[in-house]
Amino acid sequence: MLAVLVITFFASLFLGRYIISPKVVFFILLDSLSNSRSSLYEIEASIVLGIRLPRTILSMLIGAGLAVSGSTFQGLFRNPLVSPDVLGVSSGAGFGAALGILTTGISGISSISAFAFGILSVFLTYMLAKTRKEVSVMSLVLAGMIVSSIFNSLISMVKYVADPYDKLPAITYWLMGSFSKATFDSLKAVFLPIAAGIVILLLLRWRINILSLGDEEAYSLGINPKRIRLAAIAISTIVTAASVTVVGVVGWVGLVIPHISRQIVSVDHRYLLPASCILGAIFLTLVDIIARTLMSAEIPIGVLTAFVGAPFFAFLLKIVKKGKGEW
């Protein structure tokens, strides 16, 4: 799987509207590593290093982050239909970004606002689900639906009042997601929270097995599930919110990749989490390659992940029905 990841990484550097031969890409990479800049391939170098390299790293990072968060959530909530945005983080962040675009139009501010509202929405969900000091999985999912629908209606409201020639398209494009604005600066801004989140979730991977049995059984095995669940939810939320902040809403990765990983690797989260991490990185990078090569104008990534992900999911469903039976 790692080999596929490496191949995808380089493919993502060669391919695009402007195809650069592998030889040149390697030359440029080696050149930049040794810090000696030759003027031989100046345009190519600026494309590879300035645009494609940060974009590729970012798509891998976010693909991995969303997929790991998805696997974690499905384990925690003992439900394979859950995805990282089930607690409302995407809608919250979407509203934050829309509001930022509407009021200021400065991308830095709308990013911060997206992140803040993403976290806020999950916090609201959590508080709403908290009745009698207990937080049950069912009440969390229901509260997530409520908070999501509130923020979705707020997004519609913002869109309705937004200037249809200038701000409305900006909001709409943002909500569909895109890597086109990926730079080393945006990479730097989210690298730490996402990478750290992935590492912590990977370390917790065996504990998630225990939590996936349910609270009562966790207690009976001598584990208090509450704190670990809260920590895992918080980390997944930060990872998802950070991703949404730089590339907008990218659906399906967090839902589909865990399933595929479960099919080809194992249901044991010890192996499932690393596998979905790598697969998520491969999937999102491949989809991004398609997004920027298929048509002369770039296709929003959120549209494509659903377009590619959903049929693939359907295909898997059919295969599974015939084969192994239950998931």
């Binding site: 370390l203 917790l204 065996w206 504990r207 097995n209 225990i210 095995l221 010890r270």
Partner: peptide, 23 residues
């Protein structure tokens, strides 16, 4: 909820001796 194998399932009995960040 998830089809863990028998060996994986029995291993979870060891949970109380295994730290949150280990396997």
């Amino acid at each position: 909820s998830f089809p863990y194998t028998v060996r994986e399932m029995v291993a979870m009995g060891r949970a109380r001796y295994i730290g949150p960040f280990s396997v």
